[in-house]
Amino acid sequence: MLDRQIAANGQTVTLKHNGVPYTMRAFVRGYTPREIGNGIEQGDSKVVLLPTELTAAGFPADQVPERLDTMVVSGRARNVEYANPVELGDTVVRYDLLVRG
């Protein structure tokens, strides 16, 4: 279901990991004023990536998005501050990234 939502409503982003660019669809949104604090700054964005999108883009199966990867969103290069895997049972169903810059 999340795959269909990102296909229909997501946007194209490019994740640069270990110097290699991977283009895929993702949800990108800013943080609300109530969410700012505890390491989240004004201008930061939350990016939701799906494992299926990573695989389709050719992202290495034995690696995960990580801090200091670069993400291009709407033509603007930004830094990944963290990538939090979200699991259902023992399966990662998405990665929530905080991007800055």
Score class of each variant (00 low, 15 high):
Tyr31Gly: 00
Gly37Ile: 10
Glu41Thr: 09
Pro51Asp: 08
Pro51His: 04
Glu81Lys: 05
Phe59Val: 07
Tyr22Gln: 15
Asp3Gln: 08
Gly43Asp: 06
Glu66Asp: 13
Leu54Trp: 08
Tyr31Leu: 03
Gly58Gln: 06
Asp62Gln: 07
Gly10Lys: 04
Thr14Asn: 01
Met71Lys: 02
Ala56Leu: 08
Ser45Val: 09
Val92Ala: 02
Asn18Gln: 14
Lys46Ala: 09
Leu88Phe: 15
Tyr22Asp: 13
Pro51Trp: 02
Leu97Ser: 00
Leu98Trp: 02
Val86Asp: 12
Leu49Ala: 02
Met24Cys: 03
Phe59Gly: 13
Ala83Met: 07
Val47Gly: 04
Asp96Gln: 05
Val47Tyr: 05
Thr14Lys: 10
Pro33Leu: 00
His17Phe: 00
Thr23Ser: 13
Leu68Cys: 02
Met71Pro: 06
Val48Lys: 12
Leu2Ile: 08
Val73Asp: 11
Gly58Ile: 02
Pro33Arg: 03
Leu68Ser: 07
Leu97Val: 01
Arg100Pro: 05
Thr91His: 06
Ile36Asp: 07
Asp3Gly: 04
Gln5Ser: 11
Val20Cys: 03
Phe59Arg: 14
Ala8Tyr: 01
Thr14Trp: 04
Ala7Pro: 00
Asp96Ile: 08
Pro60Asn: 04
Glu53Val: 13
Arg34Cys: 00
Met24Ala: 07
Asp44Leu: 04
Val47Asp: 02
Asp69Ser: 00
Ala61Leu: 13
Arg34Phe: 12
Ile36Asn: 03
Arg4Pro: 07
Pro60Tyr: 01
Ala26Asn: 09
Leu15Arg: 06
Phe27Arg: 15
Thr14Ala: 12
Gly58Arg: 05
Val86Arg: 14
Thr32Val: 04
Val72Tyr: 08
Glu41Val: 09
Asp3Leu: 10
Asp44Tyr: 07
Glu87Lys: 11
Val47Met: 08
Thr12Phe: 10
Val73Gly: 12
Thr55Asp: 10
Ala83Pro: 00
Tyr22Met: 13
Arg78Thr: 11
Thr52Gln: 07
Ala77Glu: 08
Ser45Gly: 06
Gly75Asn: 03
Thr23Tyr: 14
Gln5Thr: 14
Glu53Leu: 03
Asn38Thr: 07
Arg4Asn: 08
Ile36Glu: 03
Val73Glu: 14
Pro33Asn: 04
Val48Met: 11
Met24Arg: 14
Tyr82Gln: 06
Val72Trp: 01
Tyr95Asp: 01
Pro65Leu: 04
Leu97Met: 03
Gly58Met: 02
Arg94Leu: 05
Phe27Thr: 13
Asp3Tyr: 09
Val20Ser: 12
Ala7Glu: 15
Pro60Glu: 10
